[in-house]
Amino acid sequence: MQRVNMIMAESPGLITICLLGYLLSAECTVFLDHENANKILNRPKRYNSGKLEEFVQGNLERECMEEKCSFEEAREVFENTERTTEFWKQYVDGDQCESNPCLNGGSCKDDINSYECWCPFGFEGKNCELDVTCNIKNGRCEQFCKNSADNKVVCSCTEGYRLAENQKSCEPAVPFPCGRVSVSQTSKLTRAETVFPDVDYVNSTEAETILDNITQSTQSFNDFTRVVGGEDAKPGQFPWQVVLNGKVDAFCGGSIVNEKWIVTAAHCVETGVKITVVAGEHNIEETEHTEQKRNVIRIIPHHNYNAAINKYNHDIALLELDEPLVLNSYVTPICIADKEYTNIFLKFGSGYVSGWGRVFHKGRSALVLQYLRVPLVDRATCLRSTKFTIYNNMFCAGFHEGGRDSCQGDSGGPHVTEVEGTSFLTGIISWGEECAMKGKYGIYTKVSRYVNWIKEKTKLT
């Protein structure tokens, strides 16, 4: 034993070699072989497995989906700052455009905790909710729209109204504003409101030439003092309507412009014939205590009207009353817009006519005020429907199939267009061939041609 100890002390290297040989010859039971080890760690190889990531292109799944990435790591994937920024906006807080917040056709661009709407022409605001041009839906104005110097929408209202708090709607500024039905039992019968379409306001006024200088022999019209197929109006439903009495009662109609003036057809009036105007009328054979009678003290036909040349060209006249009318729910003026808007309103496509005229061709006159909704007829169809001249200051309205029309005794009465609950004068009943005849239409004086003249002559002093 002493000898062994001496050998170990003198030859430590020998001992180490012996131990190493023993270990190498022993069977290893701690580690699995290569094949079995792979069965336990069965993990798919990654895209760049075996390579240094710093030297390969980034992978979106590896960089940002398996674990949260930084902007720089995302930049490695896209290799483009702009594309990385677009991805980053949604990656950080989701897609803010998912709810489609942009209105009126706006395009949404996502941002971090926010979004941006790219608005089409005519709109602005956070969600493109603000109209900035009158060309689109009248700028959301209830009545009139004008573009300011910086191309912003400025709404306005006709006389007797003021802008509401929203700067879009119009509200009454006087007790009985024009064009409004205020009798409670008839307010439910107000005709369907007309909503502004998209309009090209630059070209809204037709490029028409008034044929002022045409000389033409007097034409022989049949029954051209021209509501057939209409309905009984309720008291106060058309408070701007008046009836004219002269040699015979209810020979023509008219509309209240203001307390002192009536507008009617020029062919209705004769110099030297006494005319009485009755406002607030409903049943011409009954006294309903809503009527107001006034005498006409002055007749002003349009300066281009000449019955000797043509009885229905420039067929418009103004009547001055001896005493002002007292405005109330049964006696209310009709609204008159400017030339541009009167023309736009007419193009809405349908209007209402009213009167006490004959209820059928050569038949009896109506006792109760009649009204009828009539569609506008395109000019080409209008011209083809008659052998008589249709001037540019006239328009056609009615039904091709016949059966409904204005008729004798309705002449001078109103053709009105309702705009968001307020009625505007767009025409004056003038003439036609018979009444409600198939293929024939009622012919009306186009008020847009005469609004400046009306307003100039009827100013209240």
Rank of each mutant, 00 (worst) to 15 (best):
G58W: 00
D410P: 15
E165R: 11
F345E: 01
L24C: 13
E61L: 03
R43L: 02
K247M: 12
Y391E: 14
E433G: 11
W261N: 00
F395A: 01
T332C: 06
T461K: 09
W261I: 02
C407Q: 04
G13W: 06
A279M: 02
A380M: 09
R379P: 15
T426W: 00
G272F: 07
K247T: 13
G421P: 02
G50W: 03
S423L: 08
G355C: 08
G125K: 03
L325Q: 00
C145Q: 03
A265F: 02
D405W: 09
C69F: 01
H267K: 06
W356N: 03
I336L: 11
R83Q: 13
E159K: 07
N393H: 09
E86V: 10
T158A: 10
L369S: 12
N36A: 12
F221A: 14
V195N: 13
N258D: 04
W356P: 04
T386W: 06
F71T: 03
E193D: 14
S49T: 10
A397E: 01
V181Y: 07
F221Q: 09
V92A: 14
V331S: 03
M6E: 07
Y91I: 06
T264G: 02
Y115E: 04
S365F: 07
L321W: 00
T84L: 06
P239S: 03
L460C: 08
Y115M: 04
V331T: 06
G402I: 14
H400V: 11
Y115P: 04
L211D: 12
N313A: 13
N343Y: 04
D212R: 11
N166I: 01
C141R: 00
E456K: 10
H302A: 04
G179Q: 00
V199E: 13
I344W: 08
I214H: 07
A26E: 02
Y22S: 14
E66Q: 08
F55P: 01
N343P: 03
G272C: 06
D198H: 11
K260W: 07
V377Y: 03
N48D: 03
H34W: 11
Q241N: 15
Q2T: 07
V296C: 03
K146A: 13
C155A: 00
G230L: 14
Y444E: 00
H303I: 06
T264I: 03
E66D: 05
T271D: 06
V248I: 15
A308G: 11
G402T: 09
N104F: 04
D150M: 10
G355S: 07
K188G: 14
A233M: 08
I316F: 01
T290W: 11
Y352D: 04
Y330F: 13
Y391V: 06
C178Q: 02
V416H: 05
T461E: 12
G253F: 07
T194Y: 14
G363V: 07
E124L: 09
T186G: 11
N343S: 11
G349M: 04
V30P: 13
T194E: 13
T209C: 08
H400L: 10
S11H: 14
Y115G: 04
E116Y: 10
G254F: 01
H302S: 03
S49H: 08
L24Y: 11
L367V: 10
W240S: 00
R62D: 00
Y22N: 07
Y441I: 14
V153M: 10
K234E: 14
Y47P: 01
G442R: 10
E116S: 15
C252A: 02
L372H: 15
V77H: 05
K457S: 09
R62E: 00
E79C: 05
P172F: 05
F424V: 00
G412E: 04
C69W: 00
I214Q: 15
G179L: 01
N38E: 14
C178H: 00
N42C: 05
N283T: 11
S11W: 08
V56S: 08
L460Q: 13
K362Y: 06
L425M: 04
L41R: 04
I136Y: 13
G21T: 14
E285H: 11
V353G: 02
N258P: 00
K446Y: 02
Y371E: 06
Q2H: 09
V359D: 12
L19H: 02
F345Y: 13
E433T: 11
E79S: 09
G230T: 14
Y444S: 01
V368A: 11
K347W: 04
G349P: 04
R449P: 15
L376Q: 06
V419G: 01
E116I: 06
L163W: 02
T215C: 04
D93Y: 10
S99D: 10
G409M: 14
A307L: 07
S329R: 10
I309L: 10
L103P: 04
S184L: 14
S114G: 12
T264Y: 00
T332W: 02
A173R: 08
N313E: 09
E73N: 00
G349D: 14
A380C: 05
G246L: 05
P44L: 08
V419I: 13
E270T: 11
R75Y: 09
L20R: 02
E270K: 10
A207V: 09
Y305F: 07
L41S: 04
F424C: 00
V4M: 13
F31K: 11
D110Y: 10
